[in-house]
Design a protein around this nucleic acid. Structure first.
Length: 906
RNA sequence: GGACGCGUAGCUCAGUGGUAGAGCACUGUGUUGACAUCGCAGGGGUCGCAGGUUCAAUCCCUGCCGCGUCCA
């Protein structure tokens, strides 16, 4: 028996374990068409945050849906070694434990510590993904540092090198002085901060005056190698070529003409520090004679350099700045200091100011690789959903810069390059190969590791066995869809496109679905520092994984971030409870799981109707998946379950099940048919809801019958389902009628317990027949005990069971005719009355009818106005005109009947 | 400065060239069995502002205002 209390915790983990151990996530379907998703690998030592919950819920919805639809669904899973993040965590833990630091213990010992940490915490996130219900292919779980993956990374490095698409170069990089590594452009965040603009007088060497330059970073003047002015700036034409006597270093530096100087900015003259500014480096490249001077060490302290006074050496950049300003001030060379908001680069991991620094690093020629990646999206081999992200992708790809891939870290794939003492470099897959190439000279391996994204870029094929030509690779590359946040389009998606096309000659996936960010209820970005993060595991404990999944699915609308509100989760937990109770009702009434995916034969209108509703919903869900409209999917199944199946279908079949005596029509055949259809329909609800709420549906599926698992059930063949327009019209009419009666009763404060007589006035045959068919339902749901029909003589009155009775007394009491002291309801093409002499408030009833009349008349008049406009009848689509005519006729008739009803009230 | 997105009921969001929708919240009411994690009924919006196109605009176009994100 289904338990009275819905408690998701009582079955969620049990079903997950069952699915996993029984191999349900990856059933053998060698003949089926594959459907492949690769998971964005989470950081191996991380834990599940709400963004993961969204990303993986969406992927699981797709995977489960395609699995139900017969595809060989494979969700490739694994974790990322996350170089910088993991190394930082381990270093912090060492510090907290007061253990020797990374540098103190040395490379090998430190790497061992990281592996230890990975072993200790590496299972957390995968355990959490299981709690969420993610049906991944765990049997083939990968790690970006596992042996096979390392082989792939090394091979890619060597091949790119040999193809001259990867090279070593000395140029300015973004240097993180805290982590002491180079980082890529993408890892730099530009922020606006309060700063100052210091205007400095640079004296001319010939004593003929000075030039004013302004800078946000006075300390860099120690490395100045020239001052630039714009070639067309008349104010300075005469000065070009003159020398400046540097006030602190004493060096003489030239004034040059270069377009980088902006005449509009400050004085129009700008100091040039090639080794510490990207723009200044560009100036140097155009005027190489000016040279460059590096004045900072790896930790951004002033180092000994040409002309740098000894008392500066060792100062931090901040202290050096103060000293430069003080020294200049004492020389009387500070013109003024302007407070100003300035743009500063910060490391996204370390949070410190990034320093442009001149070093040797490895670069990938991204510009070359981007060509194919651009073309593949332009010609539609890969499509972004929503399409708007394609523009972002194009924009970046078209302006892509060389990708710095070396990192001065220890945790990661070590670069396969060896150096000889004479500076020659040998890149090879193994040391032996490098040695063979180098000859009999000692070699030392490059100390650096690769950017984590260098390896993640290989994820779609590295996980499938590449560089070996495995059957998996042939079958599952390219994948069908990548589901990810738009924030890593550049970091990851673009790079997978580049590497996939280069090494596999084919895009890595056909579709890229980009979802938004999960924000807090106020729309703020969640962050640990703000303290507004929500823990998905906590939400799962509180509401169940299904409720969280449904919430995230329902709130996922294309092109919009998600503002997560806990009340929504609560609402969807209630939805789960509703279905639970509906299933419990079914079970208690002998309704069981069906044996066939095809619906049972049905003669009853309600049964034919619900089959049609299942069909319509299945269609809507299929379309939602095709369009990646997750919100539409959740919406459609929610409506079917709650607003159709629970609110109406179950209520309408109650009289048919013979659950109670004397409520009509419960003959055995009808009851049997209804049980069969109800069981089938409930099964379809479970199948259709399963991708979003896998645990609850699997539990109910088994509670309702002994059978194979729902996770491997079959999606309904919607095209083959019958639909019956007549039955739909009947049930729509019935629902409308019941709603009208209920509404009128409530407005006039008729107690629910009062059972009324309903008399139709001048009813049509269709009305009479429907009345007869549905008298049990009307009686039960609208609170009607007796029915009378004016066109058939009062003697044909019936009670709710259809038994005729002598209505003579009732009619006699009204003087032999209907006297109108009643609630009157104008519905469809009939008016009917609920006589309530002395009970109803006639004024209230009049007001109610007048309101309805006003509404009908207003619409009638609006439609008449439109129809009287020749412009409309001549130019509008004929369907629109026809519809307006129909609506106008219906509204006119309704208004007339309402007016008549009012007249009867006197 | 460039690009993109958003502005619809108190809140969070769907939506459509032809009389505005959902969930939550709110109001009233209901409990001798599916469900109070619920039922029934109800109130609530000049669809940011101004123009334009159209027989007809919340929807298409232009401008403006406000908010957000990315890039420089």
């Amino acid at each position: 028996m289904i338990d009275k209390i819905f408690d998701p915790a009582s079955f969620e983990q049990r079903w997950y374990a069952h699915w996993e151990t029984s191999g349900a996530f990856r059933p053998a379907r060698p003949q089926a068409q594959p459907f492949t998703i690769v998971i964005p690998p989470p950081n191996v030592t991380g834990s599940l945050h709400i963004g993961h919950a969204l990303d993986n819920t969406l992927q699981d919805v797709l995977i489960r849906w395609h699995r139900l639809n017969g595809r060989d669904a494979r969700w490739v899973v694994g974790t990322d070694h996350a170089g910088i993040a993991t190394q930082m965590v381990v270093e912090r833990r060492l510090a907290e434990a007061q253990a020797p630091s990374r540098t103190a213990m040395g490379r090998e010992a430190f790497e061992a510590k990281v592996w230890e940490w990975k072993a200790e915490s590496g299972g957390t996130i995968t355990r959490q993904l299981r709690r969420l219900g993610a049906s991944c292919d765990w049997q083939n779980e990968r790690f970006t540092m596992d042996e096979g993956f390392n082989r792939a990374v090394i091979k890619v490095f060597v091949e790119l090198y040999n193809q001259k698409l990867l090279y070593r170069d000395k140029r300015l990089v973004n240097w993180d002085p805290k982590l002491k590594t180079a980082i890529s452009d993408l890892e730099v965040e530009t922020r606006e901060v309060a700063g100052s603009f210091t205007h400095i007088r640079y004296p001319l060497a010939d004593g003929s005056g000075h030039v004013i330059v302004a800078t946000t970073r006075p300390e860099t003047m120690l490395g100045d190698t020239c001052v630039a002015v714009h070639p067309e700036d008349a104010r300075y034409t005469a000065m070009v070529g003159k020398m400046i006597a540097h006030p602190i270093t004493g060096r003489q530096i030239p004034i040059i003409a270069d377009e980088w100087a902006d005449p509009e900015l400050g004085s129009g003259a700008v100091k040039i520090t090639p080794a510490h500014d990207f723009n200044d480096w560009a100036v140097f490249e155009r005027h190489r004679h000016i040279g460059w001077i590096n004045i900072l060490d790896a930790e951004a302290r002033i180092c000994a350099a040409d002309g740098v006074p000894a008392d500066y050496v060792g100062l931090s950049r901040e202290d050096a700045r103060k000293k430069v300003v003080a020294d200049l001030d004492s020389l009387g060379l500070i013109e003024r200091i302007e407070q100003k908001t300035i743009q500063m680069p910060f490391g996204d991991r370390s949070g410190v100011v990034i320093e442009p620094w001149l070093t040797d690093q490895w670069y990938v020629n991204a510009g070359e690789l981007a060509k194919q990646a651009l073309a593949a999206v332009q010609d539609g081999r890969t499509q972004f959903v929503p399409k708007t992200w394609e523009k972002t992708y194009f924009n970046w790809m078209e302006n892509i810069q060389p990708w710095c891939v070396s990192r001065q870290l220890w945790w990661g794939h070590r670069i396969p390059a060896w150096y000889a003492a004479d500076g020659r470099v040998f890149v090879a897959e193994t040391e032996a190969e490098a040695q063979a190439e180098a000859g009999d000279v000692p070699l030392t391996r490059d100390e650096d590791v690769l950017d984590t994204w260098f390896s993640s870029a290989l994820w779609p094929f590295g996980t499938l066995g590449w560089p070996d030509a495995t059957p998996d690779l042939a079958r599952h590359y390219p994948g069908d869809v990548l589901v990810t946040g738009f924030d890593i389009i550049f970091f990851w998606v673009a790079r997978m496109m580049m590497q996939g096309l280069h090494f596999m000659d084919e895009v890595p996936f056909r579709t890229v679905y980009c979802h938004g960010l999960v924000r807090d209820a106020k729309g703020q970005k969640m962050s640990k520092s703000k303290g507004n993060t929500v823990d998905p595991l906590g939400l799962i404990d509180k509401y169940g994984a299904d409720a969280l999944r449904f919430t995230l699915t329902a709130m996922e609308t294309q092109g919009r971030d998600i503002k997560l509100n806990e009340s929504r989760i609560e609402g969807y937990r209630n939805f789960a409870t509703k279905l639970w109770n509906a299933a419990r009702f079914c079970q208690a009434n002998g309704i069981e799981g069906s044996t066939s995916p095809l619906p049972p034969a049905a003669g009853q209108a309600v049964n034919r109707w619900i089959i049609g509703e299942v069909k319509a919903t299945a269609r809507a869900l299929e379309q939602a998946i095709a369009d990646y409209r997750f919100d539409a999917y959740a919406d459609a199944i929610y409506r079917l379950v709650w607003n159709r199946f629970c609110d109406w279908y179950l209520e309408l079949i109650k009289p048919l099940l013979g659950a109670k005596e004397n409520d009509g029509g419960a003959d055995a055949a009808v009851a049997a048919e209804t049980r069969a259809v109800a069981g089938w329909a409930l099964d379809q609800l479970l199948v259709m809801l399963h991708p979003v709420m896998p645990f609850l549906t699997e539990e109910l599926w088994h509670q309702l019958a002994i059978r194979d698992d729902l996770i491997l059930a079959q999606w309904v063949n919607s095209a083959a389902l019958p639909e019956d327009a007549g039955a739909s019209a009947d049930i729509d009419w019935l629902i409308g009628l019941i709603s009208e009666v209920r509404s009128a009763r409530t407005e006039l404060n008729v107690p629910t317990s009062a059972k009324l007589t309903m008399i139709s006035i001048q009813e049509t045959d269709e009305f009479f027949n429907r009345f007869h068919t549905f008298k049990g339902q009307i009686s039960r749901l609208a609170g009607i005990s007796h029915f009378g029909f004016s066109n058939r003589g009062w003697g044909t009155a019936i009670n709710a069971s259809g038994v005729e009775f002598d209505a003579g007394d009732m009619v006699a009491a009204r003087g032999g005719q209907f006297n109108g002291v009643s609630i009157q309801i104008v519905y469809s093409d009939t008016t009917f009355a609920l006589p309530l002499d002395g009970v109803i408030d006639i004024a209230a009833e009049k007001a109610r009818l007048e309101k309805a009349l006003a509404a009908a008349a207003k619409e009638r008049d609006a439609l008449a106005g439109r129809l009287n406009n020749p412009g409309f009848t001549e130019k509008a689509k004929p369907e629109a005109v026809d519809k307006a005519r129909e609506d106008h006729a219906a509204r006119s008739a309704e208004a007339e009947r309402l007016a008549a009803a009012l007249a009867r009230l006197g």
